[in-house]
Design a protein around this nucleic acid. Structure first.
Lengths: 325, 325
DNA sequence: CCTTGACCTGAAACGCGTTTCATACATTAT
DNA sequence: ATAATGTATGAAACGCGTTTCAGGTCAAGG
């Protein structure tokens, strides 16, 4: 493999000059620049990117950690991230963690080892205390409704949004409201639970733990929910679910249980993915792609200013009324 | 930042010994090993990964190029790739190309620049001739039903599978069969078209170009298909579609057009994603995750043996009979 | 005429872990 | 007893682009 020194020799200039040409530094005479370019062309020289990274100390790689790429919510975030990353010539390194802390740590270790210029947590399982140990390793952004003030975070206000959704259901005459969560102890879920508690108290309704369903994320989960519903002694009149996939699962299996939606049970979900449009699901839109985009911008900001921000960014949500409430 | 030389000094050994400890080389006495480990612990030393990459000449990064991560087919492949990659301590760099050749080339250039140890094409837009120029840049695997013999490829036999599907529809009494494709000129689509042509000839049925629908990939596309169907003068009795998403879109909008499935129109699709199970879609299963897994293994194989294979790997498909045919 | 600053160039140092090669002692095998 | 292995260790070279620093030229400003 040819090196910059070979080129320097062949072009009759110094390695510095070659480097300058490679990096578009202005202080190179046209004559030398041409000579260098000519040699580069002739021997089909390719820069050794590892050497570049070693010298510069960074890599234009950013880590994206998420539990499962094969879920519309996460693949949408990644799409948002990807679009923005391309604009800034950043590459994405994917960490599919399945919520295993060890795999999340791997990304953080690579951040510390400067392989990654930053890490975006689309969701996380590791504790906040562990995360804080990597505070100085490089830019970290969290896509969650976070109360901490150590890392920038990015989310809709889940508590407000959930209350808003509950108010909507209540305005439609519902008071018997069940709900589902992705992960009971996830940061966003905690907010949703809190909102539920508050609102049920307001209504004077009891909190029935059997009306709170954990680990509901996919269409399949939604389908199974209908099965579980059969065994419930007291049945809710509305379901406020994790996302459009769960809602879709419910809709798709409602018929076989002879349940009419929204007459028997109303369904309200989050996200507003394409499937919500197609199936007529009433949902609270989350600007998922926008979140991804802003996450990248935040990383870039931290990187350029060489400063750690801890800005909490709150994105807007909105109700999309369709046919399930 | 502390370097390996600092450690050597503090531990009273040579840098070589430190490197050996770091790499678990057996020829280090327990005494020295302990001393080194102790110093590493004390000063919280972290290896500079760029220096490692520069020395070793590779990076444990592999590129994954695909048009859109936000599609179940591709996110499933990536999931398969990811699971296998984790086992081998490889990281994935994602290239979302939208089928723009320039972005595919970016991945190839990074392969040539040794940032990437290999590239997996989940789908591609660039021509084969261009691809061949990167033959020596490093391992490249194509997830497509390919006729070339320059790169390893990985796919179900699309022509056979499509014929098989057609035979199945024919056995159910259909001869008026329309079909959809993702990209008319994609390698897999070509095979499917070929199979269609052959089979229609056998049947003595004409090839109606208006029964061939291009760019059908998503649920939304499936929905729009039903709209287009209305304007067809002569209507097919069966639809053989790109994937389960398109089938789902058809099913979800069939009711509004008062079309009964399978009575009025039978639907057969590819993939066997979870949605096919939930909606009762009859489909031809493609082992998508397995493809991802094998793609990684192929890259590793090429990397280790330092040889370019060009093996064409054919995976099995199978019919999953459900309720749409 | 002299100072200042923009422009141009290159030698050498820098970033840092890995690998090769030479050396030396301890075992085993013959 | 001697040759052949295996174990252990370190100096120096290697991978290669970037950056700093010093030195030099030339035109504009005072």
């Amino acid at each position: 493999m040819a090196t910059i020194r070979d080129i320097a020799k062949l072009a009759g200039v110094s390695v510095t000059t070659v480097s300058r040409v490679l990096n578009n530094h202005p202080y190179v005479s046209d004559k030398k620049k041409e000579a260098v370019l000519k040699v580069i062309e002739e021997i089909n020289y390719k820069r050794n990117i590892h050497a570049v990274h070693l010298s510069k100390g960074f890599s234009n790689l950013i880590g994206v950690v998420l539990p499962k790429i094969d879920h519309p919510y996460f693949s949408s975030i990644v799409e948002g991230i990807s679009e923005e990353a391309i604009k800034h010539h950043l590459q994405l390194v994917l960490f599919q963690t399945n919520y295993e802390p060890a795999k999340e740590l791997e990304a953080l270790e690579l951040l510390r080892g400067t392989l990654l210029d930053g890490v975006i947590f689309c969701s996380r399982a590791i504790s906040f205390d562990v995360l804080k140990e990597y505070k100085n390793a490089g830019p970290i952004v969290l896509c969650e409704d976070s109360d901490q003030s150590h890392f920038p975070s990015l989310s809709i206000p889940h508590e407000q949004a959930f209350q808003f959704g509950l108010d909507y259901l209540i305005s439609k005459g519902h008071t018997k409201i069940a709900f589902t969560l992705g992960r009971m102890e996830g940061p966003n879920s905690k907010k949703r639970r809190k909102a539920y508690k508050t609102k049920m108290k307001e209504l004077g309704e009891p909190i029935r733990s059997e009306w709170i369903f954990d680990k509901c994320l996919s269409i399949t989960d939604g389908k199974q929910l209908m099965e579980k519903l059969q065994h419930l002694e007291k049945k809710p009149t509305a379901f406020f679910v994790t996302n459009d996939q769960v809602a879709a699962g419910i809709l798709l299996s409602a018929e076989q249980y002879k349940i009419k939606i929204p007459q028997d049970i109303a369904i309200l979900s989050f996200d507003n993915q394409p499937i919500a449009d197609i199936m007529g699901i009433t949902t609270i839109e989350i600007p998922i792609r926008k979140m991804g985009k802003l996450a990248v911008q935040s990383i870039i900001h931290c990187k350029e200013k060489r400063e750690q921000t801890n800005k909490k960014m709150t994105l807007p949500f909105r109700l999309i009324e369709r046919k399930t409430v």
